[in-house]
Design a protein around this nucleic acid. Sequence first.
DNA 1: TTACATAGTGTTATAATATAACAATTTAAA
DNA 2: TTTAAATTGTTATATTATAACACTATGTAA
Lengths: 130, 130
Amino acid sequence: MDKMQNLSKNQQIIFDLIDKSSEPMKAYSILHNVQKKGIKAPLQVYRALDKLVEIGKIHKIESRNAFIACHNSSCQVSKATAFSICEICKKVTEISSASLSKYLTNFKDKDGMKYSKYNLEFFGLCKKCR
Amino acid sequence: MDKMQNLSKNQQIIFDLIDKSSEPMKAYSILHNVQKKGIKAPLQVYRALDKLVEIGKIHKIESRNAFIACHNSSCQVSKATAFSICEICKKVTEISSASLSKYLTNFKDKDGMKYSKYNLEFFGLCKKCR
DNA sequence: TTACATAGTGTTATAATATAACAATTTAAA
DNA sequence: TTTAAATTGTTATATTATAACACTATGTAA
């Protein structure tokens, strides 16, 4: 199951909305925005979100309970994500740094354990808000 | 405001509970456990949790909406956290790696921005579950 | 084509997580 | 000791997310 598959009707509607948004969107905000397209219930939104996250088209910003389209074209699946979050304007940007992802993918803990997945959220002030 | 300050009554009750727990605790589970001590309402729990997070005595595991006591005695404030999370048994461990924290603290994004705070959650299988 | 499995949809109800607003009390400093 | 800041108690409500069930569409293998 990869990014190239066709999305279902609800998945496409919801992905298009998130993809057009300049900021992460919350589930109920998505719901309000797609009610005119016939998506009436929270569960319809959450199901589409779950699938979109699973196939890596969107990511969840855990600290915000919000969803953002993936802008890292090289990642087929959503398993190694990093974001910067501005604490003033709340702008969220996906970080795609080869050296960062290499460092984290190869990171071993005390017991020598490596981890296949990670999510990293950086907080600070963006350029505009400094 | 640092870790050494005295905690208030509710803060102490709730910290003790989380600190004794072998796994991250959720807010309403905490509530159920402290009702016999006179803490009756969600807000009383959330207020104590907010404060404990602020002063670095506990951390929130964002991907789980759960709270864990800080086991990294060197961190006075909760601003740079890293955890490993087992996807089977759900065990969460705080990672205290000087090289990891150094790498992330010094990480600069494309624009040269550095970030004062971060939260990193690794997912994989722990030793027991492999 | 038929049948069969898998994925997706629609719907109602409800669970789980978190905050608003207001009044009272305690604590710690000036 | 009086004043400011932090904490508490309380009710109500907002926000985020899932359970359960019935039905429909889609792809695939016989």
